[in-house]
Design a protein around this nucleic acid. Structure first.
Lengths: 196, 196
DNA sequence: TCTAGAAGTTACAGACCGGTAACACCCTAG
DNA sequence: CTAGGGTGTTACCGGTCTGTAACTTCTAGA
């Protein structure tokens, strides 16, 4: 039987998962394909049989990251079905957890900074995936009954993005330590404004 | 005469200025020392006579960037002597200008993301310079008579940092377009709270 | 058991990287 | 005019990088 749930993971998936982890930790230009394949317990030829190039692998990793993010959104909906405001608070909590446990920032943002070539193929993907996340947060704010939903969503986006990068430059004791207080304060402030 | 204001700029300064520009545009790992020296109209040997290593050059570039930032702070004080609140608004305006005209983000933040090695010599410098900027903004907020000065300063910091990275991932039409509105709204909100 | 395709292995090409050595040059201070 | 320091030039080292070729081994499906 072809057996979809093979006990030993397919090399392609092992490479993808390993590459995601290593790109996240050391950056894209900071890790070579040799290191990835070795860590994945395979070899370079196998990588190039499954991915056209390193850039292609990078793009596939970013798509996988977006997929994980989608799973989180579904978890919010599952844990607080219908309660959009609770989902928004869950988003803040998730973001804070991510800040405290992770250390390195958003893979897409990091990639956008690292791949400075304006015509890099990954840039299209980053832009559309980030746009999708933004739309999702705007929708959540709107459904939570907040008046200026776009403005709140954009403010929260920038705060999180800023906290993730500040974490890497000034460290955990820097401004990013106040993220939850800022975010919650903003939400109550916007809720008050829309209920006036 | 040794003539401090030599009409032809010293090679060291040419290298430093060129490296700053190229690191800013293409990232640190995205440009080699050969490219820098060629663009600076000199050669690799001269670079290594003035800088111990590429890492040393990077650090010197970051210090120069911090120096430019200091000049901006002095400009704020010169244009609005004593009026700390006006200086705070000038800071917002400067940040917005920077967002619209520049495209690439903060050199220190970009470097922190790119140089993921936790023991990289540049990380110390980045942290202390970023910390200094933070202290400066906190002081400005406090002197402007804002109650929760640290919280406002940290929020503004994260907003700007987030706007700069968002600009690179989602583009100019993304959340960063609302930076001024967010920042000004925060300032009035914090002013109202401290004057209650 | 046989076979086809996936995966592993080794070696290599070609380019770029940071950094150094040896030597020729120029320009200015004395 | 001359001596010396800053600069330019060329060549090179050892390493790493992405990507490929040719060949062998393994494994799953019939």
């Amino acid at each position: 039987m072809e057996d979809g749930t093979a006990e030993r993971i397919r090399p392609r998936d092992r490479i993808l998962e390993t590459a995601r982890d290593m790109f996240h930790k050391h950056g894209i230009k900071g890790v070579g394909v040799d290191a990835i394949t070795e860590a994945a317990g395979t070899n370079k030829m196998t990588l190039y049989r499954h991915f056209e190039s390193k850039d292609d692998l990078v793009i596939e990793c970013l798509r996988a990251t977006a997929c994980s993010a989608n799973a989180m959104w579904q978890k919010f909906e599952a844990e607080h079905p219908g309660d959009k405001l609770a989902q928004l608070h869950a988003w803040v909590r998730m973001a804070a957890d991510c800040l405290m446990t992770d250390g390195r920032g958003c893979d897409m943002a990091n990639a956008a900074i690292e791949l400075s070539e304006t015509d890099h193929p990954a840039r299209r993907v980053i832009k559309e995936l980030k746009q999708a996340q933004r739309d999702r947060l705007v929708g959540l704010c709107r459904d939570a009954g907040i008046g200026q939903a776009e403005l709140l969503a954009d403010t929260l986006s920038l705060l999180l993005e800023g906290a993730r990068v500040s974490l890497q430059s000034v460290g955990a004791e820097g401004p990013s330590a106040q993220f939850v207080r800022m975010a919650e304060g903003l939400i109550t402030s916007f809720r008050g404004a829309s209920a006036r």
